[in-house]
Simulated assay, not measured.
Amino acid sequence: MDRPIGVIDSGVGGLTVAKEIMRQLPKETIYYVGDTSRCPYGSRPKEEVIAFTWQMVHFLLKKQIKMLVIACNTATAFALEEIQAKIEIPVVGVVHPGARSALKNTQNISIGVIGTKGTIESKVYERALRSINNEVEIYSKACEPFVPLVERNCLTGDYARSIVQQSLAHFQETSIDTLILGCTHYPLLQPLIQEVIGEDVTVISSGDETAREVSAILYHHELLQTDDVQPNHFFYTTGSRALFSQIANNWFGTPLHNIIEIVL
């Protein structure tokens, strides 16, 4: 079906999910909305996150999307079930795919989770992990400085490394062999995170598993794009187009077109 997939996030982090969907489903068109002017969501009240998330959803529904991906862990934790209940198209979040991937990879059933304050305090990953395996040992930590680092495109260097080291010190005395990046901004810091946490720990980003779930749901609902077409993606940001473009182009490794500033 020649209609776009909508992807929403509090900022640029959801590009990590959009990129993986585009890789796995190269015929599909993506309409992405990043609410960069109000990022981060993780420290905001639940009601505010839900209201902002609905604004992005309504914007994309006007674009006739056929499926919605909530590529923000905080928005997934607070708003996923409500949105699934109230709109008619398929809606997926990023928490359960990330949890499944972590449980596939862990050898000692000891898993770390890092995310925003809102995501960690919601315990959404604990519930998702334990719904699959009650015996899993979970260590969680809110890493509030990470999203501002990414949104400023500060991904390397001594300052970024020191922030990552301070934030992950909590895990040095644990037995985790798997770490879930419970915020879609965090994969942009993944090289630093992997360096600090150590090569013995598998770092899990939910993008790959989420893209597989998107593919399966589109197939089940007979919504896959089967025509041999060249997709025309659109990227909307509520913040600086220039900064969004810089981060997006670096992440994709190629200049992106159709980057547009909007007001929600």
Rank of each mutant, 00 (worst) to 15 (best):
V7Q: 01
V7A: 02
I8A: 00
E20P: 03
E20S: 06
E28S: 12
Y31D: 04
Y32Q: 07
Y32L: 08
D35Y: 01
T36N: 12
C39I: 02
R44L: 15
P45I: 06
K46M: 00
K46S: 00
V69R: 01
N73W: 05
A75C: 11
A77K: 01
E82L: 12
V95T: 05
H96E: 15
A99I: 13
R100V: 09
Q107E: 12
I109Y: 11
S110A: 13
G115N: 01
K117W: 02
T119E: 04
E121C: 06
S122E: 00
E126G: 11
R127P: 03
R127N: 12
E137K: 15
I138F: 03
Y139D: 10
N153W: 02
C154L: 14
A160G: 07
A160Y: 08
Q165D: 10
S167V: 10
L168I: 13
F171H: 13
Q172A: 15
I176W: 05
G182F: 09
C183L: 08
T184Q: 02
L189A: 05
P191G: 07
I193E: 02
E199H: 12
V203G: 04
V203I: 14
G207D: 06
D208R: 04
E209G: 05
A216H: 11
E222D: 13
T226G: 00
T226L: 14
D227M: 09
D228G: 09
P231R: 06
T238Y: 01
F244K: 02
N249F: 13
F252Y: 13
